[in-house]
Design a protein around this nucleic acid. Sequence first.
DNA 1: TTTTATGTTCGCAAAATTACGAATGATATT
DNA 2: AATATCATTCGTAATTTTGCGAACATAAAA
Lengths: 110, 110
Amino acid sequence: MATSDYTIKQELLAKFAKALGHPARIAICDFLAKQETCYFGEINEELPIAKATVSQHLTALKEAGLIQGEIEAPKVKYCINKENWRLARELFGEFLGQCVCKTGGSCCEK
Amino acid sequence: MATSDYTIKQELLAKFAKALGHPARIAICDFLAKQETCYFGEINEELPIAKATVSQHLTALKEAGLIQGEIEAPKVKYCINKENWRLARELFGEFLGQCVCKTGGSCCEK
DNA sequence: TTTTATGTTCGCAAAATTACGAATGATATT
DNA sequence: AATATCATTCGTAATTTTGCGAACATAAAA
């Protein structure tokens, strides 16, 4: 009984990708990447969704390790998790760089 | 009534990320990236899931534009969509590169 | 101690995802 | 024309995701 049928790298990359698989979460990361830190309230104002939903998306990104938060009562401060962000950049770079696209056209061309 | 509250880039990046948000689909791309083309049967053998499910994952990747397929009766040949693959590489590179991680630690440190 | 401000969690509903076997379709081959 | 091969689609079920408002929790401020 294997832990998984896929490699650790594949699992990890899929986890990062899944966390980024929603425009709201991309927007959150875009926003956070522009500053050192920011408060929940600012993120919430930036997005067209209810605060409960924003909180959910933040939790998803946090569980994937892409961001982190800390309480600064009564506010909550969020930011990019640099360590894992770098890891994600490496994994995506490796993954997306492995296709040998020498010719301009598609692989399936006759 | 806007088409979307997010930018085109954010939507597109999220679409690519969502398509890559499952280890089976990462594995499929890893496999396809290693060769010019390959048949459904080969992909199917590589994965620990039923062929109906493999077909679903292939459809998901195809709809996101990351791969493409063509019939070579009675088989079906799949491959990376190089054009969009390059686009994905650019978008992810830009996105993941935008965090200014000058210091080693986390953004949230005091 | 009682407000007030700020986010999270709860409870719920709708929709999407994941997975499978069975049925179907499409096309070579016999 | 009948058969065999290969992959998709159908039908179904279980789970997860997304979204919201209301209720709750926490800690600062009055």
